[in-house]
Design a protein around this nucleic acid. Sequence first.
DNA 1: AAGGCGATGTTTTTT
DNA 2: ACATCGCCTT
Length: 855
Amino acid sequence: MNAWDENDAFEAAARPAPVPLSQRAMGAMASARPTPYLDDLNPAQRAAVEALDGPVLMLAGAGTGKTKALTSRIVHLMAMGRARPNEILSVTFTNKAAREMKERVARLLGQVVEGMPWMGTFHSLSVKILRRHAELVGLKSNFTILDTDDQIRLLKQLILAANIDEKRWPARMLAGMIDGWKNRALTPDRVPSAEASGYAHRGTELYEQYQERLRTLNATDFGDLLLHCVTIFQKHTDVLEQYQRWFKYILVDEYQDTNICQYLWLRLLAQAHKNICCVGDDDQSIYGWRGAEVGNILRFEKDFPGAKVVRLEQNYRSTPHILAAASAVIAANAGRLGKTLWTEETVGEKVHLIGHWDGEEEARWIGEEIEALQKGRRGLAPKGLNQQAILVRASHQMRAFEDRFLTIGLPYRVIGGPRFYERQEIRDAMAYFRLAVSPDDDLAFERVVNLPKRGLGDKAQAEIQRIARNAGMSLLEGAREAVATGAIGGKGAGQLRAFVEGVVRWHWFTANRDNPAAIGPFTEKLSIEEATEAALLSELAGLDKDDDARPTVMQNLAQVRSRISIFKRKIAILEGKHVFLAEDILEESGYAAMWQNDKTPEAPGRLENLKELVKALEQFENLQGFLEHVSLIMDNGQDDSGEKVSIMTLHAAKGLEFPVVFLPGWEDGLFPSQRSMDESGLKGLEEERRLAYVGITRAEELCTVSFASNRRVYGQWQSQMPSRFIDELPPDHVDILTPPGLYGGGFGAANPYTSTAMDDRIAKADVYNSPGWKRMQDRAGNRPVAQPRETRSVTIDATAVSAFTEGDRVFHQKFGYGIVTGIEGDKLDIDFDKAGVKKIVARFVVDADSADDLT
DNA sequence: AAGGCGATGTTTTTT
DNA sequence: ACATCGCCTT
């Protein structure tokens, strides 16, 4: 059954097979001290690193140097000769974390580690394993990985076929349930009957059909990657044993985020030798809503009897006040494993707390505070924009900040959001590439057959489906058939034929790469055309300057030359220039043109993304290789360049740190989120509280919590109560600020017309405010909390100002096209076609015509 | 087939 | 408020 030889297979994966590091790199180190990296560790870290054998749980609080401990442990394993690099399995959740770990191990070793093939995410490692044993779960090893979008479309088809009203039972809901089941390692046959009633009583039935459909498509979804591995491990002990033997040591990062399926995956692999080291922090478990089980980390000692538990509690990141605030908040949670963060640091500012009238004022104030901090003030050295971040609970909160920062010209960067490969245009382009590689990819076919519009509506597509299904062929073949038999007529037919021919042609190019027989005819044609070119040139030379024949010859020459360049390009493609092929596909399909003709503000950005996609292709051997990796590996094309304030969700902030952190929107219902509390009750509230803990602990020097008394929620103005987490902040470690210019300050300024509950809440907040209320107002008076707006230096960019006049048509990256209606210093009043009137700093817009040129 | 219009439901997100 | 979606109109 196992056609692969254990050692060969793994050696190949680890190529170039390194000389065991214990002999080489360590040999070099050994001359001075065998294990120099140990000297950099504190006692707890060192204990965690040196406990090599048996189960180890490293409880690493925020900022306690867990990555350092983890990477040192890896190096130590090699240095002690316990395992070769390719015998260590180290698992992370994100590619970014995996990359960072690789880099840090390399830095510790002082050399590049090429032999750590088993360091990666749960998913990428699972893919690697699954490709080897795909046939054991009814797949071929070249299976494709569907993303959420494909998944939904597939489910919609099944729901339709099952005669279920998709309005009452949305596909998204079913997708969520199936995901949930997979997270819990439940195959269709194991779904508890109690849950089967969930989706119109047909959830499991559809789940089963969905799995069947995936198998026929030779595809998996993300959940399957792990679940299939678990299934294989459970059913084929011989396979499991080989991996158990191979992975001598296992390390897991962010263990508190593992779900049941991942837990099983790990336990199965670790069962034999139990050399598993899990690192995590139960207080930072913030992914319960997507299946993470804090229970996994809480239960570790039961699961692995005799486990050594090490607590990393010395914090190297934040000042004492910040730590105290974070600790006080998280202390309100029950059932923690419990850690006490401490620091040797003694100085530092208290956590700042400030209330505002509404969300816009909050954004305005934070903008000014950021600019003030940029210049530096009191004990704080100037903080560049890269050192400052705004962390919000929900992404819609970002808007207020983006709007504000755009008008004052404060550069910002939004972290997170849709990932590069999730963007529509990228996925469309990928579908074209997928078709080129495998024309039978029905999902890809469906996605782009009418994109750009080819006059193929529901009816035509249904007809193609029908034909294909009846004849048992792929949709592409079905489409060809439909055209040939005239089943599809009208204007769609011609375009469909062109589409089918295009796919066949592109596929031919991918299939005939490096095939001399394919290249031959092209070189022949090329030489003919080149001969023609030469002939035309000599003919032209013989003609008089104003000979009547001259224009025709010139025209012919141009045609010949364009054919020559096409042939050269095609030859290059056949010789392996798949980037050209990708470009041609996007051109010939009309997909690129679709966006070029699109005048919406997003269009230029999308074209830019397509260019980036093509550029990313260069690093791969061929289209196939690209497609295989891209679904798992490709990252957000973030621009790390330039000084910018970061805006992101609290979730996206985990693992990051900033000298200055703003935590706006601490209002009950927003944070903690009402929905979270409604859906998950106390558990939900506790997860929200952990989110608060994560937020506060991101800050190194200055953490500012804020709330607004009024906020627009779904278009309605609502008065807000300060978050209950604010009550949990320890008064001794908090400074309450008053925004300048607001009579009576933030709290006092709360809407006098609000409910009594609101007043109670404010009064309650004032209970601990009151001792310091006077003092606070005094301080607010003589401390430059924020620069008064008037004194903020306004640099007038002469070129920018003179560049526009009233009535000019301009383009803005976010708001699109608009007309300049007024000019005021370096700011323009612009009436945008779509977004309405805005005040924008001149350098953020360009002339509308030059925007067109960009495309 | 394709564009316009009213009803709808609004967290967090990796792979 | 806002975007998305399905339905309805052209």
